[in-house]
Design a protein around this nucleic acid. Structure first.
Lengths: 143, 143
DNA sequence: ATACAACTTCAAGCCAACTTGAGGTCAACG
DNA sequence: CGTTGACCTCAAGTTGGCTTGAAGTTGTAT
């Protein structure tokens, strides 16, 4: 049993973010000391998982579908399979992008977008479905 | 030279999104036929690259730093190196997440968060810096 | 007992990344 | 020449994921 400030410290998540996650049902507190929330230790792993899934580009809603509201252990196998596959696709795209960037670093061609090697590297990812978008957000500041 | 509707069709990006990207300087049109924008073919590759970088979790601003405003071919080597490294980190995280999900699919433990194997898999990513957040956005709808 | 810090709630604010809508303009077709 | 429809601009709206701020409540230290 830990309180929100310790959980915040351990996880690097701001307290407001943790409260928000609780509000949307991603984590839960198991009681109060006075009015202060108390969390089980399990929550730490849960939070890491959430962070990880966000990195993968999943929305909080999708993450909820994956890991469920706490106390609900039923993760649907097919859903997980789909998510895992989606991640695989992303990994391959990122690998292409990384290789593309690394190539650009060493390529002296006038315009990289015209460099055949670059284009070939990029083509791997280019021929996939439609792109989504992703956005990095700021660091905790416990306000 | 292609117009916005064709570019939209080819790229899967909505026209409004393309206009928006032009507004923020990620792409540029090279003229008008009447008042209709005309784009060079090069733009297609550029757009794919943007989509890819978004998948990697970079903001439009960061992407601009990477690939520059069109016509500006100067990509700073050190910046690219940093981006490539960041992508590597992300890839490793995603790999962990994927493996974790795949394990959960085959694990009959009562609570996955308590499963030692799962925890070990997750630990890899857990011990990295701070998490960012990412968000998938919607598909083109050409409004 | 009183102060204080650390929490609480709730509503409002903020940012990126777009989308939507109203109203305007143009080229091409009949 | 007129109309049609695809584009245009510009402002405002939307969504997700939080943060911020004001005002209230506590356990603990003095």
């Amino acid at each position: 049993m830990i309180d929100i400030s310790e959980l915040s410290r351990l996880s690097g998540f701001s307290a407001s973010k943790l409260r928000y996650y609780e509000e949307v049902g991603l984590i839960r507190s198991v009681g109060r000391r006075g009015l202060k929330r108390l969390y089980e230790n399990e929550v730490k792993a849960r939070i890491s998982l959430i962070a990880l899934a966000q990195t993968a580009g999943f929305s909080l809603l999708e993450i909820k579908e994956m890991i469920g509201t706490e106390g609900t252990p039923d993760l649907k196998r097919s859903a997980l399979e789909a998510k895992a596959d989606a991640i695989d696709v992303t990994i391959r795209e990122l690998t292409s992008l990384r290789d593309g960037l690394r190539h650009v670093m060493n390529c002296t061609a006038p315009s990289h977008l015209e460099c055949p090697r670059f284009q070939r590297i990029m083509h791997v990812a280019l021929t996939r479905k439609r792109p989504g978008a992703a956005k990095r957000r700021n660091r905790p500041t416990n306000g």
